[in-house]
Design a protein around this nucleic acid. Sequence first.
DNA 1: CCCTGTGAACCTGTTCACAGCG
DNA 2: CGCTGTGAACAGGTTCACAGGG
Lengths: 209, 209
Amino acid sequence: MNAQPIPSPAVRRLSLYLRHLEQLAAEGVKSVASNELAESLNVTAAQVRKDLGYFGQFGRPGVGYRVRVLIEELRRILGTDRTVNVILVGAGDLGRALLRYKGFRRKGFNLVAAFDVAPGKIGRAVGTVNVHNVSELPSIVRRHKVKLAVLAVPAEVAQETADMLAAAGIRGILNFAPATLHTDADLAVAPVDLAAHLEELSFRIGHHL
Amino acid sequence: MNAQPIPSPAVRRLSLYLRHLEQLAAEGVKSVASNELAESLNVTAAQVRKDLGYFGQFGRPGVGYRVRVLIEELRRILGTDRTVNVILVGAGDLGRALLRYKGFRRKGFNLVAAFDVAPGKIGRAVGTVNVHNVSELPSIVRRHKVKLAVLAVPAEVAQETADMLAAAGIRGILNFAPATLHTDADLAVAPVDLAAHLEELSFRIGHHL
DNA sequence: CCCTGTGAACCTGTTCACAGCG
DNA sequence: CGCTGTGAACAGGTTCACAGGG
C-alpha cells in the first residue's frame, strides 16, 4: 500500500531522534514537541515532522510526541526492537576496539562472534566474544541467523571478504575498510572511512569558514 | 574570485577519489579517465568531472587525469599536502584503538598526544603517543599548533569537552561521542555515530530491498 | 575520435505555510 | 490556542548532453 519513497537522509536521522529520545526518557521527560527535538539536534522542526511522517502519525496536535511511544515506534521501524545479532570480521586494532565498544549492545545489537585469519588471534577472547577462524563463519552465521557484519579487515582483502560474507547469507555490512565494495543490490553497505572524515575537517578549516 | 558554492557531498567524495588514485599510483597506473574512476567508486563519470571542476581543471580532453598530478592537487585542496597535527581526547576503548589505527598517519595526519581525566590512564603510552591530563591540553595544542581533535569521550561530557577544545583553539572535531554538539560556526564538527550506521543497515535489510 | 568541462534540465530532499485536530 | 501532518514552493545536487580541445 505504501510505496517507499523514503529519503535515505531521513532514515539516518531516525537514529538521531531515537538517541535523543532515549536521553529524554532517562531524564524523565514524558513528551516533546518537534521544535524542541529539532533544536537539540540542529535540524528544523518541519524536518522532524516530515521524517516521522514517512512512517506514520505518532504525535498529538497541541501536545507533541510521547517520548516512550516514539522510542518504541522508532525501534520497531529500525528493527532494533528485538536483539539483532552481528559478527565482526578482522580482529586487528580497530576490530578489537569495536568488539569492546559498548555502544552497539546498548542499541540492541549483539556481537556473537569475531573472525580472523591470523593464527595468533584465533582462539582468544576479546570483550564478550571469541575470535574464530573464518572457516567457521558460515556455520556460525547460519546458527545464529546473523544478517549484519562489521568489516574491519585490511583494504586489500575487503572485497573478497565481502563476497564471502554475501555467500554466507549476510545482508548488511558496516565497512571500516578503506575500500569501495562492489556488491549485489540485496547486500547493503554502510561505509565508514575514518580518515576521510578527518580530511573533510581539514578541508573545512583550511579554507573559508 | 571564486565564490564557494561547493556542495559538501562533493568535498566528501574528494577523499574517495584520492583514496582510489593512491591505489592506482601504487599499481603503477599513470592516467585515468573519469568513467574508470567512477566505475570503481560507484558514482557517475559526470559526477567525478563536476566535483573536480569545482576546484580547477585537472584533466586533459582525450586522455583523462594524470594520477600523480591529481593526487597532489587533491591533497593540496584537502590540506593534507603537509602533515596535519591532531590530538585525541578520551582514552577509553575506542580512543585507544583510534590511537593505534594506522590509517590516519597514512593519510598525512599526525597524532601528537592523547588526553583523559582518569588517573589510571594518564602517563601511559598508547601507540605512538602518551596520555596526558586534560589540564595540559591547552599548552600542547598551542605548542604544536593543533587545529583538529578526535573526540572519544562519553556522551555525558561531550559538550563540555567540545567547549574546552574550542576555547583551546581547536577548529575541527571528529566526534565519536553519541551526542549532538552545539558549537560556533567557526568550529567544524564531523559526527561519526557507529551505532547509527548499524541501525541504518538494520532498517535497510528489515524492509524492502 | 576520445574525453574533459560545463550550462541546462531534472530530480530529490528541505523548508514553508496552513488546514485541522485535540 | 498549540502543535501536528502535509501539499506546495523552493533549493541544492545530480545527471544529461554537447561544445571544444588534444
